[in-house]
């Protein structure tokens, strides 16, 4: 569903990503792990068009998208929930969710009715968001903002979802909640590329995983395979 081939990208003149290739098959959860600064976020940004790759190809559902603007890639079915959540602080929880579905809703009138069923779906997944639906998103707790960021990405009914460090800055108990949400999404058949610091938990939900180091993919394989790799054990699962 998502294929990245020989991707090179960076900021200004410094190249951060060197020859990244990875694949996320339809209905699978793929984890991308690696130390701080390895280039995981940069990889996601290069895929979603927030950063223009210098070289390489990105295929979304068979379509070459690396030349496109981020908003166009999003409209083609990629939902990127960015590092740091980036909810629209001054807007209400519900408006944030509605905007998640922007690309498939009418622009002026009737968008609420059209989105009602999907809104209920997200509220069923995150009842806390329903309680706070009229509250400004910026006043939510970190955990709630993460739920909102995930819900907002789901609202677009994406073909592929990128989720960058959903557990960042959250208390352990909330982190567990985030992972149980991811497991539930997996049961619904979501196609997901997940970046996580908690490599252990990430490998538990993933079908396949890539390990990055200094801008390159250094190891890849199934979680079972990675758990037996000494380098992975030493660096990430110790």
């Amino acid at each position: 569903m998502l294929t990245v081939e020989n991707l090179h990208a960076g900021y200004g003149t410094s190249e951060v990503l060197v020859d990244i290739s990875l694949e996320v098959k339809a209905g699978s959860v793929v984890a991308l792990i690696g130390a701080n600064g390895a280039g995981k976020t940069t990889t996601m940004r290069a895929i979603s068009g927030m950063l223009k790759p210098n070289r390489g190809r990105v295929l979304l559902d068979g379509r070459l998208v690396q030349e496109f603007d981020a908003s166009r890639i999003a409209r083609l079915g990629l939902a990127h929930s960015p590092e740091g959540r980036k909810v629209f602080g001054p807007l209400s929880v519900e408006d944030n969710l509605l905007l998640g579905a922007y690309s498939r809703l009418p622009r002026f009138f009737g968008f609420r009715a059209r989105a009602a069923a999907d809104l209920e779906g997200v509220y069923a997944l995150f009842p806390r968001l329903k309680e706070r639906r009229l509250q400004a998103a910026g006043t939510l707790s970190g955990g709630e903002q993460q739920m909102l960021a995930i819900g907002r990405a789901l609202m677009s009914k994406p073909k592929v979802m990128l989720l960058d460090e959903p557990s960042m800055g959250l208390a352990p108990i909330i982190v567990q909640e985030v992972f149980s949400t991811i497991r539930r999404l997996k049961e619904t058949g979501i196609t997901l590329l997940l970046v996580e610091q908690f490599a252990k938990s990430a490998l538990e939900v993933a079908d396949y995983a890539y390990v990055m180091d200094r801008g390159r993919i250094v190891i890849e394989g199934t979680p079972a395979h990675l758990r037996e790799d000494e380098r992975v054990l030493a660096a990430y699962l110790g």
């Binding site: 629209f88 905007l99 922007y102 002026f108 677009s156």
Partner: peptide
């Protein structure tokens, strides 16, 4: 009241995140 207007507010709040929703900042 309109979704386009909310998109306007979204771009004002965070241009990059708005683009990720499929909203064209341009």
């Amino acid at each position: 009241k309109t979704l386009l207007g909310k998109a306007f507010e979204a771009v004002s709040a965070d241009r990059d995140a708005a683009q990720l929703m499929g909203i064209s900042a341009t």
